[in-house]
Design a protein around this nucleic acid. Structure first.
Lengths: 169, 169
DNA sequence: CCGATAATGTTGAAGTTTGTACAAAGAGTG
DNA sequence: CACTCTTTGTACAAACTTCAACATTATCGG
């Protein structure tokens, strides 16, 4: 039922500079992997009745928080940690669904904005409360406030480290 | 640079039973999402030179830990949290790559074992130290031992909760 | 101003994942 | 035993992601 991934597996030798994970380390690592996969699965599942996938939802949120509910494709790709190519396809699909539109960019004739449509906004408005309920029920509300602080203190720097790596590569 | 997903976004009302995330809750939630995405990206990237994807690696590990380096398809799908369909495709690819083979199941003529080949075992042997180094460098070694304990105490139950949900649906 | 270089996005093909339907074999029941 | 119900794994088609190539426009140096 667990999800191994960096295991000793009797018969294989670790590198000198990177010993196998201890039992405690390993169970944490596996818990993290499981939570990642399962949470995405579950949240996606609960979003499905609304006809949205996690990717769609994330984009709606990001756009909704921007000044004019719009963002340059490249920035949106960066904000959502996707490749430009993937985002382009994604936006094409969402455009077909009427959630966003592409609009040319005044100052830069190469650029495009992805813009939230009214329909997109209404959809978000309708879906957000349910999604927040999911996030609370399956994640946030399972921690007390000390844990919330401790988790952020631990995970925040990891996220920052990885974000920095991604930039260059 | 962050990855919103359950945000208030001025102008949308929360449900009565599920208020918006507080600032602390939200930054944790976003950190978690970012770590999930970025870590998978980075680990996958560092696995690439070995010609493996995370999925491949995970399957090698799971099989390597089994008594005869084999597991029934259904069990393997459950262990790796994939659909049976997806696993079937995955094993087909890995079989082509020579990492595993399918073997019939003596007691149950419907069943098949996915079996680690010698090549698969050697590959794991070669790749594992590097992967563990990655996991340490980008995740485990960024916490002190108190944090490791605290994180597991927090995440373990969440994983258990989500696993239980998955079973039924 | 021109030419080289870089940035913005898209495209199309190939590869992966998902969802549903299906064939084959076991299990339980009268 | 026959009948139904369940379990196992695959196969196909549709949806999604990745990768590399490309067209277009901006930017920088002489």
């Amino acid at each position: 039922m667990e999800t191994p991934t960096a295991s000793p597996a009797a018969g294989i030798e670790a590198a000198d500079d990177a010993p196998w994970l201890t039992a405690e380390e390993q169970r944490l690592w596996r818990a993290h992997l499981d939570v990642c996969k399962l949470l995405e699965y579950q949240l996606g599942r609960e979003l499905q009745p609304h006809g949205l996938a996690m990717n769609d939802y994330e984009i709606l949120v990001v756009l909704s928080e921007e000044p004019h509910r719009r963002m340059r494709m490249t920035d949106l790709a960066a904000a959502t940690l996707q490749s430009k190519s993937r985002l382009s396809h994604q936006i094409t699909r969402m455009e077909k669904a009427g959630l966003v539109v592409r609009e040319g960019c005044p100052g830069d004739r190469r650029g495009l904005y992805a813009v939230l449509t009214d329909d997109g906004w209404q959809t978000l408005r309708k879906v957000a409360p349910d999604h927040v309920r999911s996030v609370r029920h399956h994640f946030i509300d399972r921690f007390d406030s000390d844990q919330i602080a401790a988790l952020y203190e631990a995970l925040g720097p990891v996220a920052a480290h990885l974000r920095a790596l991604r930039g260059r590569g």
